Computed example of a mutant assay.
Amino acid sequence: MRSLLFSLAACAAFAVAPAQAQDQDASPTAADLPDAGGDFAIVGAGAAILPDYEGSNDYSVTPFPAAIGRVSGFAFTVLGNRASVDLIRDGVGPTWDFQAGPIAVVNFNRSSVDAIDDIRVASLPERDIAIELGGYVGIGKTGVITSDFDRLSASLSYRTDVSGTHESGIWTPSVSYSTPLSRKALVGLFVSAERVENRYADTYFSVTAPDAVLSGLPAYDADGGWKHYTIGLAFTHSLTGDLLNGLQLVAGGTYKRMLNDFGDSPITSVAGSRGQWLGAVGLAYSF
Rank of each mutant, 00 (worst) to 15 (best):
R70I: 03
A41Y: 00
V61S: 07
A47G: 13
G44H: 12
I68C: 02
P28Q: 08
S72F: 07
E54Y: 01
N81C: 01
A67M: 12
P28F: 05
S56I: 13
F74G: 01
P18Y: 00
F40P: 09
G73S: 06
A15D: 02
G37C: 08
E54Q: 10
D35C: 01
G38A: 06
F40Y: 04
L79H: 08
A19M: 05
P51E: 01
D35R: 14
A75R: 00
A9Q: 15
A26H: 12
A75N: 00
T62C: 06
Q22A: 08
G73N: 02
A12M: 03
Y53L: 07
V61C: 03
G38H: 07
T77W: 09
G37L: 05
A75Q: 01
Q24M: 11
Q22G: 06
R70F: 00
F76L: 00
A13Y: 11
Q22D: 14
S56M: 09
G80I: 01
G73D: 02
T29D: 15
A48G: 07
E54V: 00
A17F: 05
S60W: 14
Q20T: 10
A66S: 06
L87H: 10
P65F: 12
A26I: 03
L33A: 12
A36P: 00
A13Q: 14
A9R: 13
F74Q: 00
G55R: 04
D52P: 04
A12T: 09
Y59V: 09
G69A: 06
Y53P: 03
P63N: 07
A30H: 10
P63F: 09
A19S: 15
A21L: 05
N57M: 03
P63R: 10
D32S: 15
G38M: 02
V43T: 07
D25T: 13
T29V: 10
G44Y: 06
S72T: 04
A48H: 01
R70Y: 01
L33Y: 02
A31Y: 08
V61T: 15
G73M: 08
G37P: 05
R82I: 09
A83F: 12
G69D: 11
D32T: 03
D52R: 02
L33R: 12
A13K: 14
G46Q: 03
R82M: 11
I68M: 12
P63W: 11
L33C: 10
R82N: 14
D23S: 11
A17Y: 14
G80S: 07
N81Q: 06
G44A: 03
C11P: 01
D58R: 07
G44E: 08
A9F: 06
A83T: 07
P51G: 02
A30Y: 14
S84P: 00
P28K: 09
A17R: 15
